[in-house]
């Protein structure tokens, strides 16, 4: 069993209203030195697979088939 963290980011240039609205709210709260906020999604996935290389392949397929849209997203996979 492995525990993986899959982080989904928007590609550069793709609009991120969640990030920009969060930045606006932070500034309103007085965090004026905040210059940029990007939203990202983190999925924590338990996988019944001992081989990390195999697990990585499976997780990449998960990203391509559901978690990310390759047109607008990049993803990073980390293991615990």
């Amino acid at each position: 069993m492995v525990k993986a963290f899959v982080e989904i980011h928007l590609k550069k240039g793709v609009a991120d209203p969640e990030g920009s609205n969060t930045l606006k709210a932070l500034k309103l709260l007085g965090f004026e030195n905040a210059t940029d906020v990007k939203s990202a999604k983190l999925f924590e996935i338990d996988l019944e697979e001992e081989d990390k290389a195999k697990a990585k392949g499976i997780l990449e397929e998960m990203c391509n088939r559901l978690l990310a849209n390759p047109v607008i997203h990049d993803y990073q996979i980390r293991f615990e």
Partner: peptide
């Protein structure tokens, strides 16, 4: 296609 080849992303207005 196996994967999406286009996207309907967030409106430019962000809302």
């Amino acid at each position: 296609s196996r994967y999406p080849t286009a996207s309907l992303g967030w409106n430019d207005s962000g809302r």
